[in-house]
C-alpha cells in the first residue's frame, strides 16, 4: 500500500470514528492544533517518531500532552492510536486529510489562517464571513498562532493566499530597499 493511500485510510478511519462519536468538530479542531504543534516542535516530533522509544511510552507522552482537559478523550485516543501504530511521521498529513474530508462533508473550504495573537470567537466568525464573501464559498477557519507573522493575518484557502501580515510588509520593504 502506498503512503498516500495509507494516509487516506487513516484519515478516513479517524473521520468516521469522530463522526460516530458525534464530536467531529471538536476533534477536528483539536487534531488540527495538535498537528501544528507537532510541526513546530522538533522535540515533540522526535519523541513521537523515535522507534527506539516503546509505543506505550510514546502514547503516554500524547496522553500527558493532551490530557488534563486539553482535548477530548476521542482526540487523545485517535492520536495515541496513530502514534502507537508507528505512523507518527504521517500524523500532520493524516490530520490535514481528515480536516479536508470534514470540510468536504460539510461543503466547506478549509481556510488556514495564521495570526501573531489568538483571535476571539467573534473575530473568527467575522473572518469566516469575510473569507466566504471574498472567495464565494463557505469556509472552515483554522487559526494557527504563529509569532513569525509579527502582526495581521494571512489566510490560505486552497491555492488562494490573502496576505495582510506585518512580516510580508516588512519583507516587501526589505526588497524595495
Amino acid at each position: 500500500m502506498s503512503t498516500d493511500a495509507r494516509i487516506d485510510g487513516y484519515a478516513r478511519a479517524l473521520f468516521e470514528i469522530a463522526r460516530a462519536e458525534g464530536t467531529l468538530d471538536e476533534v477536528e479542531d483539536e487534531l488540527f492544533r495538535f498537528a501544528r504543534s507537532y510541526e513546530s516542535s522538533d522535540e515533540l516530533r522526535n519523541a513521537l517518531t523515535d522507534d527506539q522509544i516503546p509505543a506505550a511510552k510514546r502514547q503516554s507522552i500524547v496522553e500527558d500532552l493532551l490530557g488534563g482537559g486539553n482535548a477530548t478523550p476521542t482526540t487523545i485516543q485517535l492520536v495515541s492510536m496513530v502514534v502507537g501504530s508507528g505512523r507518527g511521521r504521517d500524523l500532520p498529513a493524516i490530520i490535514d486529510r481528515l480536516v479536508q474530508r470534514a470540510a468536504n462533508a460539510k461543503n466547506l473550504e478549509v481556510a488556514e489562517v495564521r495570526s501573531a495573537v489568538e483571535l476571539s470567537d467573534d473575530q473568527v466568525e467575522r473572518l469566516k464571513a469575510a473569507l466566504a464573501n471574498a472567495i464565494g464559498k463557505n469556509v472552515n477557519v483554522k487559526v494557527i498562532v504563529d509569532p513569525a507573522v509579527l502582526g495581521g493575518l494571512v489566510a490560505t484557502v486552497g491555492d488562494t493566499v490573502i496576505d495582510g501580515t506585518v512580516r510580508t510588509a516588512l519583507d516587501q520593504l526589505k526588497s524595495r530597499l
Binding site: 495570526s115 483571535l119 473575530q123 464571513a129 469575510a130 464573501n133 495581521g152 490573502i162 495582510g164 506585518v166
Partner: peptide, 11 residues
C-alpha cells in the same frame, strides 16, 4: 487593529 483592518479589507 491590524486584525480588524484585515477582516474589513477581506470582507
Amino acid at each position: 487593529r491590524l486584525i480588524e483592518d484585515y477582516i474589513a479589507r477581506v470582507g
